[in-house]
């Protein structure tokens, strides 16, 4: 409870990327990712160029390389899926290192790995340079329905509280000698989930009453507004603009 209110994914630095308004960064990341996805997979150089662009952003934002690499671990399940592709896909077969593999499957594996990794790194950079609270404010500025951003705000604000509740339940179970070994533990664990739901929902009821007693009328007061100047928009547009050049080159078949 005494911990700071800065999210652990956010890396506080004084950099131009950190200072950009959140909605500009959101639009830039979305445009970048869509361009990457739309790039033909045969143009391998294009993906290398995208990676260089992201590395440049990371350097400007002073996000350490190691941090980014460590956080890409989130895509491990998909790497496994991608590695299966050459074995299950149909089409012409080739021999690679003595293995009988599908050629189109190899391309697919490359496709998933390259595009997936670029997308993951783009999201990691976004989360590392933007406070979660500001990200939601950015979504609000992009005309996302207020109710949705409010729900997301509450989820972020209480996510750690609910997770800590789950942690205390785990300690309570462990201190009573419980150990989840196999499927027979389901009953106990699912009862914890049920209790967690009740505690979360009842906390929601209390939060609502506390808000009503402070004058809540269905809208959240806007505490800090984040406007964007033309200069900031164009700074944020650098990444997707460079990506557009790469993508255009790839489509024209360089």
């Amino acid at each position: 409870m005494g911990a700071g209110h800065v999210h652990r994914l956010y890396l506080d630095r004084a950099s131009p990327v950190h200072r950009l308004p959140p909605h500009c960064k959101l639009v830039a990341v979305l445009a970048f990712v869509l361009l990457v996805v739309a790039t033909p997979r045969e143009r391998m150089w294009a993906f290398a160029a995208y990676a260089v662009l992201l590395a440049a952003v990371a350097a400007v934002a002073r996000i350490p390389f190691g941090t980014v690499v460590r956080r890409t671990a989130i895509e491990v399940p998909f790497v496994a899926f991608a590695l299966l592709m050459p074995f299950v896909a149909t089409g012409e077969k080739t021999t690679v290192l003595g293995l009988w593999l599908s050629e189109s499957g190899l391309w697919s594996a490359w496709d998933i790995l390259a595009k997936g990794t670029l997308g993951v790194v783009a999201s990691i950079l976004l989360a590392a340079t933007t406070e979660p609270r500001l990200l939601l404010l950015g979504l609000d500025r992009l005309r996302m329905p207020q109710l949705l951003t409010q729900i997301a705000t509450f989820m972020l604000r209480y996510g750690d509280v609910v997770a800590a509740e789950l942690g205390r339940m785990r300690v309570a179970r462990a201190s009573r000698g419980f150990e989840a070994r196999d499927v027979r533990a389901t009953g106990v664990l699912a009862k914890s989930v049920g209790a967690l739901f009740l505690r979360s929902y009842e906390r929601g009821e209390r939060v609502h009453l506390a808000m009503v007693s402070r004058g809540y009328d269905g809208r959240m007061p806007l505490l800090d507004d984040v406007g964007a100047t033309a200069g900031q928009w164009s700074a944020a547009a650098l990444l997707p603009a460079a990506a557009l050049l790469v993508a255009a080159g790839a489509w024209m078949g360089i």
């Binding site: 409010q150 729900i151 705000t153 509450f154 989820m155 209480y158 929601g204 009821e205 609502h208 269905g218």
Partner: peptide, 12 residues
């Protein structure tokens, strides 16, 4: 009007 806090906590 309870939507935001209750759905938010359920999402959490």
């Amino acid at each position: 009007d309870r939507t935001a806090p209750l759905a938010g906590l359920t999402a959490a």
